[in-house]
Deep mutational scan, measured.
Amino acid sequence: MSGNGNAAATAEENSPKMRVIRVGTRKSQLARIQTDSVVATLKASYPGLQFEIIAMSTTGDKILDTALSKIGEKSLFTKELEHALEKNEVDLVVHSLKDLPTVLPPGFTIGAICKRENPHDAVVFHPKFVGKTLETLPEKSVVGTSSLRRAAQLQRKFPHLEFRSIRGNLNTRLRKLDEQQEFSAIILATAGLQRMGWHNRVGQILHPEECMYAVGQGALGVEVRAKDQDILDLVGVLHDPETLLRCIAERAFLRHLEGGCSVPVAVHTAMKDGQLYLTGGVWSLDGSDSIQETMQATIHVPAQHEDGPEDDPQLVGITARNIPRGPQLAAQNLGISLANLLLSKGAKNILDVARQLNDAH
């Protein structure tokens, strides 16, 4: 009898209710805020589980004197976190989706994509230029951005401005803007500013005609071990179906173009009346040469937790077992079709030249 009692006690200790789920994140304040929001949602869904947040620095956090596009290494903000995932030191990792490459290392998958916040870019102005827009900034004003995508589009749109690289986390960039006289304004992701509670610093939100956004911008991705079915089931509740389908289309477009950090590629997606609209573009580094096109596809946005595919093969690095396969494939095909259209119009040449120029500098 006593033996059975011990077995029952052991089973209770090993039951999922007692389990601590370890969540990996970057150390920056924004990353911690984003991770806290994901953990809060998981806690609400699984009140019996405990969650421990483990923060670590990544290569991208450490190399702050070089433009991201020049470092010449993929997975700048993800490699150390993936290493911890691989060694079973954490069970899942919360990322900004735009930091996750469209091809993940073997053994990993994006197990959830959370509801997207505003994906557009924002302009934050130096205190002396508050009330201005990019259009009304004085001639030769210097605007800071760490992104080739932003610089290429904005140089084309605002030729009277000069664009220079600015690195560091959000706090560091804002301090550089406010305390030094080098920059009249800087460009940042609206979602990051909003998550930090800095709505009052948003001086201008850039519309798609001015600057399309990065693939996955404004959404959070939760990376897990691809074979860890328990954790895949656990994080599945975080999937937002519309965000998922938009981001599958965007990531398929980028992957098929073979774009990345070192080339200016941008997108804009919208879901309306059962249609998914995808606009994508590529630019030369100075913005003088560009190709942009829009395509659409009829896609039914499923309700969360309709029964999805059981075999769960990944699409552009994403596993969404609780979302039907048909809409996911339709979104992926839309991204591939748009990429093929741009490639047929000469996108590869623009991107190759951009890559060579970026590598040469």
Rank of each mutant, 00 (worst) to 15 (best):
D91M: 03
Q314Y: 01
L342G: 06
E139H: 14
F158D: 09
Q314T: 10
T59G: 07
I71W: 07
T269A: 09
W283F: 01
K27W: 13
V123A: 11
E117F: 12
R246F: 05
V235L: 10
A270M: 15
V142E: 11
C114K: 07
P241R: 01
Q332N: 06
T102D: 05
V143W: 03
N358D: 01
D230L: 01
D233S: 11
L329I: 12
P241K: 01
S28D: 01
G107I: 01
L351Q: 15
P106S: 13
M212E: 05
Y277S: 08
M56E: 12
I318K: 15
N349Q: 14
G260S: 01
D307V: 08
N200V: 06
L206D: 05
L276M: 14
R156P: 13
I248V: 07
H126A: 10
L68W: 07
I110E: 04
I110D: 04
S37F: 11
S141D: 07
H199G: 09
A112D: 04
V124H: 01
E223W: 01
Q328R: 01
G144P: 01
F108W: 14
L234P: 01
G168N: 04
H160P: 10
K74E: 01
T190I: 15
L170N: 10
R116V: 01
I113F: 01
L188D: 01
V282Y: 03
I113T: 06
L206K: 01
A112H: 01
S75Y: 01
S290T: 01
Q356Y: 05
H239W: 01
G281L: 08
C261P: 01
I231C: 03
M271C: 06
H160G: 11
G281E: 15
D65W: 08
A44L: 10
R246K: 06
G218L: 04
K98F: 01
H256P: 05
R164H: 14
L137P: 01
A270N: 04
N169Q: 05
T109D: 01
V130Y: 14
L134I: 09
K132C: 11
Q181F: 10
S344I: 14
R195Y: 10
D228T: 03
I299D: 12
G335D: 06
G107Q: 14
D36C: 07
G107K: 07
E117V: 14
A339V: 10
Q204N: 01
L357I: 14
P208Q: 10
E242S: 04
E80H: 07
Q275P: 08
T41F: 08
E210A: 07
G111V: 04
A112F: 01
Q181L: 09
K27E: 10
G192M: 05
I186A: 11
V202M: 12
I110Q: 01
H95E: 03
A67G: 09
K345C: 05
G308N: 13
V90P: 01
Q153A: 05
R164L: 10
Q155L: 10
I299W: 04
H120I: 06
Q292T: 10
P324E: 03
D228W: 01
K157A: 13
I187Y: 01
I318R: 05
N200H: 14
V222D: 01
R149Y: 07
E242H: 15
C211S: 11
H207K: 13
K43W: 09
L177N: 07
N322A: 01
S57I: 01
S290Q: 01
I318Q: 01
N322R: 13
E258Y: 13
E139T: 08
I231G: 06
D311N: 12
G260A: 04
S57C: 10
L68T: 06
Y213H: 14
D289G: 08
R321C: 07
D233Y: 07
H83L: 14
R173I: 01
E258A: 04
E117A: 07
G197H: 01
R116D: 04
P313Y: 15
H199W: 10
V235F: 01
D99I: 01
R321D: 04
N171G: 11
V93N: 08
D178F: 06
V235M: 11
G335L: 01
T66D: 05
P313G: 10
Q204I: 01
P127I: 13
E209A: 03
V235R: 01
D352L: 12
A266Q: 01
N358K: 15
E80M: 10
L238P: 07
M196C: 14
A303I: 15
A330C: 15
E209R: 09
P208I: 13
N200L: 05
K27P: 11
Q296D: 04
H268F: 13
L85H: 01
R225P: 13
L177D: 04
E179S: 11
I323Y: 10
M295R: 14
I350Q: 04
Q332W: 13
A297D: 11
P119S: 10
L188F: 08
R164V: 10
D121G: 04
K62T: 01
L137N: 04
V130K: 07
K345M: 14
A226N: 03
I54L: 10
M271I: 15
D65V: 09
E210C: 15
T294E: 01
T102I: 13
A303R: 13
R19C: 04
P208N: 01
T136V: 10
Q180D: 08
F163E: 08
C211W: 07
L206P: 05
A40V: 12
R149M: 01
D289S: 10
A297L: 05
A31D: 01
G192R: 01
V39N: 08
L329P: 01
R22H: 15
F163I: 13
H83W: 14
